[in-house]
Design a protein around this nucleic acid. Structure first.
Length: 659
RNA sequence: GCCGCAGUGGCUUAGUGGUAGAGCGGCGCCUUGGUAAGGCGCAGGUCGGGGGUUCAAUUCCCCCCUGCGGCUCCA
């Protein structure tokens, strides 16, 4: 599998998504070792197209030297000469400190999180070698692009082990040395538009620090989303409200004992997450996808995955097994593609979908990017790939799946489409040939959408949408997403037999019907926080409320009656506050727990045989029978999965997970 | 990953170069209460971890961990 060579851009698959990634932070890295000796031996080629080395060049040894393990980084590509100059100065500095005139240059790609292309790296190393010789050093250059073994004896003094990161300066020089990467990146033009429901496209631009080109009146979230996408504006600087909520409600918490972005779920959080997971999987199966399960880790050396991953090693969690190096999946793409390539498929069976709920998918996101439930390193993503015979079938199926995603988020408690903004990414060619389809999509969505149009297809898809939740801090998070992938079937060798008996390559749709489950929770909590801020009672949908009914006896005299009422509420998550708190205190506790129905049992209720129900957020109470409450909840939770209470039904029996 | 800020009993926090106080929560006793905190008492702290400076460090310095904000990035 060969991905289009596109330095400066970079593939990420999330429900298989692919995004541009501008590399600006990486620098050349050097690890210095002051050694008694270093000895190396060339094993085999690591980079294709290199000549076989003559025998005398296959090993080398240097005594009493400063060894420099070097990786050239993406950033250096723009200016290899400047980078080499900066590196030479740094090496001279260190060599001076350890008082040696002998230097070993040892290309060592493992230092890098974002490796430069081999060509550029070689250019840089050659320049560096030349520069150092010019400064009068005795330079040993170990060959580039081969796997080597080495022996080394490091001196013990304090300066014997140092590492540096070096950035070339000389901006003027950089311009002349523009790399192919920069040129390629410059060639990719991205235009921003708003496409309204009538099919009219409004080109956007940035004027005076805000997005212009469309009248955003009545579409404030779309304005904020466009601004987020186009300018990365940050108007608010607070902790996202859902973080406090997820902890205060004892749902989810950070786990300092793990890696950042790997969370712990308390019983109530696990309950909610499990219910959403069940519902998403159920609905996706009903849509017609066949559920499968695939491994969480994959061989770095697998031919279909290798070149892809070597390019972006920093993105993956790496796991060393007893005999190979593997990476943890960042979506179900690999697993499903590897299954699909071995399947025997007829056109009669298309469209054909596989589905998996990945618990977990892993992405080693940068530390500063992590945030509560919005952005994680380990997350649960439903991922559903459909093979389609041709673009017409893909378009039809795309909309079938759109309805699945829409309904799912609606079921989870979101208002559709009010709570989301569509981001649509499309290639110029697809836009030209299928503009009617994109317009029909906007019409179906029911409000204007943000369109990013790419001049060329650099990524594996021609069309992609996301439903973006825009939160109180003006940050956008994508939930549901689907794409039309024109490349991966070929890359993975997935085929079907057509009417004429010929092998053909299908298109692949990549759907995450709800987006990451954690993000669904994030959205629900953010929505609740927004309600609270607006003076409305924050709550979760009844089917997701950890406690649906709280029975509160006025005094201990009614405990027995309360227990019998509790026993009549089977099929409902009902619990009983059997503490010795006062009534007011027990009501307060129930309100803090966001319990939608609080049933008070006192002497009056025992006599009347009815219960007094306080409905969440209102101070209004109403008399009703137990059966009436039961059927009310049944109708509110119809067609949703059910799980019993996650904790003991008597509050006095519950431990506290978090103050 | 980079820059800045933060970390004090389960939670929220006060405070200090001479080893810490409060509220909530917990436990006990009293209270038997009609819709968002009843009363009294008790227990609970290696002041995130490691190193350094100092007669003495929770306090000052360095490194690390975790979190927050920004950058970058993105599902």
């Amino acid at each position: 599998m060969e991905t289009p060579s596109l330095p400066g851009y970079f593939r990420v698959s999330g429900a298989g998504a692919l995004y541009p990634r501008r590399i600006t932070r990486a620098e050349m890295r050097i690890l210095f070792l002051h050694v008694d000796y270093l000895e190396y031996e060339v094993k085999e080629k690591a980079v294709k197209g290199l000549p076989d080395l003559p025998k005398e060049a296959r090993h080398g040894r240097a005594e009493e030297a400063l060894v420099c393990f070097i990786s050239a980084e993406k950033r250096d590509e723009a200016n290899p000469i400047g980078a080499a100059k900066a590196a030479a100065a740094s090496i001279e500095d260190v060599a001076g400190q350890v008082r040696t005139r002998r230097v070993v240059l040892y290309p060592y790609s493992h230092l890098s999180s974002s490796l430069a292309s081999p060509d550029r790296a070689q250019e840089l190393l050659a320049a560096l070698e030349k520069d150092l010789r010019a400064r009068g050093y005795d330079v040993t250059a170990s060959p580039f692009g081969y796997y080597k073994s080495f022996k080394v004896a490091v001196k013990g003094h304090p300066l014997s082990e140092l590492s540096r990161e070096i950035v070339a300066e000389a901006a003027a020089e950089a311009k002349e040395e523009l790399s192919d990467a920069i040129k390629a990146e410059a060639k990719l033009r991205s235009d921003w538009l708003v496409l309204d429901t009538k099919g009219e496209a409004h080109p956007l631009s940035i004027k005076d620090g805000s997005v212009a080109g469309f009248d955003f009146k009545g579409h404030d979230n779309l304005r904020r989303f466009a601004s987020y996408e186009m300018m990365k504006t940050r108007e608010v600087k607070e902790e996202p409200p859902h973080v406090r909520l997820m902890r205060d409600l004892e749902l989810v918490d950070y786990e300092p004992g793990s890696d950042p972005g790997n969370l712990r779920y308390y019983p109530k959080g696990r309950l909610i997450k499990g219910l959403i997971e069940e519902h998403v999987s159920q609905r996706t199966r009903e849509y017609g996808a066949m559920e499968v399960e695939s491994p969480v880790m994959y061989d770095f050396e697998h031919p279909a995955l290798k070149s892809y991953l070597n390019r972006f090693p920093a993105r993956q969690y790496v796991v060393q097994t007893p005999n190979k190096k593997t990476f943890l999946r960042f979506s179900a793409c690999f697993g499903q593609f590897l299954i699909m390539k071995d399947m025997v498929i007829s056109y009669k069976q298309l469209p054909l979908s596989l589905y998996e709920l990945t618990r977990y998918s892993f992405r080693a996101e940068q530390r500063g990017e992590l945030a509560g439930l919005r952005r994680l390193r380990a997350f649960t993503m439903p991922d559903c790939h459909a093979l389609c015979a041709d673009v017409e079938q893909a378009k039809t199926q795309f909309m079938v799946r759109f309805e699945v995603a829409w309904k799912l988020l609606e079921d989870c408690g979101f208002s559709m489409p009010d709570d989301f903004e569509v981001g649509m990414r499309v290639t110029e060619a697809f836009w030209r040939d299928h503009r009617d389809f994109v317009t029909a999509y906007a019409k179906r969505w029911g409000k204007p959408i943000l369109l990013e149009k790419w001049s060329e297809q650099f990524f594996y898809f021609t069309l992609k949408y996301e439903f973006n939740f825009v939160d109180a801090n003006d940050k956008a998070a994508a939930l549901s997403t689907d794409q039309i992938d024109t490349e991966n079937a070929k890359r993975f060798g997935i085929t079907f037999t057509d009417e004429k008996g010929a092998k053909r390559t299908p298109l692949i749709l990549h759907l995450s019907p709800s987006g990451a489950i954690e993000r669904v929770m994030y959205g629900l909590l953010e929505k609740a926080a927004a309600d609270a801020k607006a003076g409305r009672p924050p709550m979760l949908p009844v089917w997701l409320s950890p406690t649906q009914v709280r029975i509160v006896p006025v005094s201990a005299d009614q405990l027995d009656d309360a227990r019998s009422i509790l026993s009549r509420l089977d099929g409902v998550r009902a619990d009983l506050d059997d503490t010795s708190d006062t009534l007011a205190k027990k009501i307060r506790t129930a309100e803090k727990d966001w319990v939608p129905y609080v049933a008070v049992i006192g002497r009056k209720e025992v006599e009347s045989g009815k219960i007094n129900v306080r409905v969440r957020g209102t101070t209004k109470q109403g008399e009703m029978t137990v059966d009436a409450l039961r059927s009310r909840i049944a109708s509110e939770t119809k067609d949703r999965p059910f799980r019993p209470l996650a904790e003991p039904k008597f509050l006095s029996m519950r431990p506290i997970f978090r103050g």
